[in-house]
């Protein structure tokens, strides 16, 4: 407890660093995945290929990816950009599948009636397909958010600062309180962002508020969890 009180400033800095690394991948992976997921769902040939490639990407463990990316990006090993890019890639790998599944789950009857009443392909996507796939997308992005925030800590072992630095520093100095602080804060951030996403979902999709929990649970079971380290 004394450790916590004496190190408020450090903790504050690390929380900010943690958010700066973990929030961009959550947003970016969503924005990038929707068009790719649309392509994957729209064209039969693309689905298998895209999902296989992304599946392989997802199979790459994160710590090795953090180490290889600097070679590709021309960055330094301890540059936090590497983490942002790596976590975005994982997010995309998960979200593209979720988007494709979500779009595929839209009732064909509804889609046909939308075409029949005169939606253009473009407006149908934004006004019919995307909103109806919304609950599935929300479930997917919640998984991405929580695992991204948790994975960010791994960067600490190669010297990228985040709440994970409390683990490595606490380990070297043998301060359990420091490590616990890191764990608790990471979980709090993860659950807060998750809660915000749920709220956002309620605001954007008031019509599913009643049963979104059920859909989300089903999708959570289908989605793949985080690959750590």
């Amino acid at each position: 407890m004394t450790w916590l009180l004496n190190n408020g400033e450090l903790i504050g800095q690390l929380v900010v660093a943690h958010l700066l690394i973990s929030l961009p991948p959550i947003i970016l992976s969503f924005v990038i995945s929707v068009p790719i997921g649309w392509v994957a769902n729209r064209y039969r040939w693309s689905r298998g290929t895209l999902l296989t490639v992304l599946g392989l990407l997802y199979a790459i463990p994160s710590l090795p990816l953090f180490i290889i990316l600097p070679l590709v990006l021309g960055t330094g090993l301890r540059d936090s950009i590497n983490l942002v890019v790596a976590l975005t890639l994982y997010g995309i790998a998960l979200m593209v599948r979720t988007t494709a599944d979500g779009l595929a789950s839209v009732d064909p009857g509804i889609r046909q009636s939308a075409t029949a009443v005169g939606f253009s392909e473009r407006s149908q996507f934004f006004r019919v397909d995307l909103p109806l796939a919304g609950p599935v997308l929300l479930a997917g992005i919640r998984v991405v958010a929580v695992s991204t925030i948790s994975l960010t800590t791994v960067g600490a072992v190669i010297g990228v600062d985040s709440l994970g630095a409390l683990f490595t520093d606490g380990f070297q100095r043998g301060i359990a309180a420091e490590i616990l602080t890191g764990i608790v804060l990471t979980i709090i951030i993860a659950l807060s962002v998750d809660g915000l996403l749920v709220l956002l979902g309620r605001v954007l999709m008031p019509w599913v508020a009643v049963n979104s929990g059920r859909v989300a649970r089903r999708e959570l079971r289908r989605a793949r969890g985080p690959v750590t380290a």
């Binding site: 800590t153 994970g164 409390l166 380990f171 750590t228």
Partner: peptide, 14 residues
Amino acid sequence: RALPTLGLLIIIAL
């Protein structure tokens, strides 16, 4: 899922 494995591993090691 939310629990950072690195933190868990280190606290157990301690």
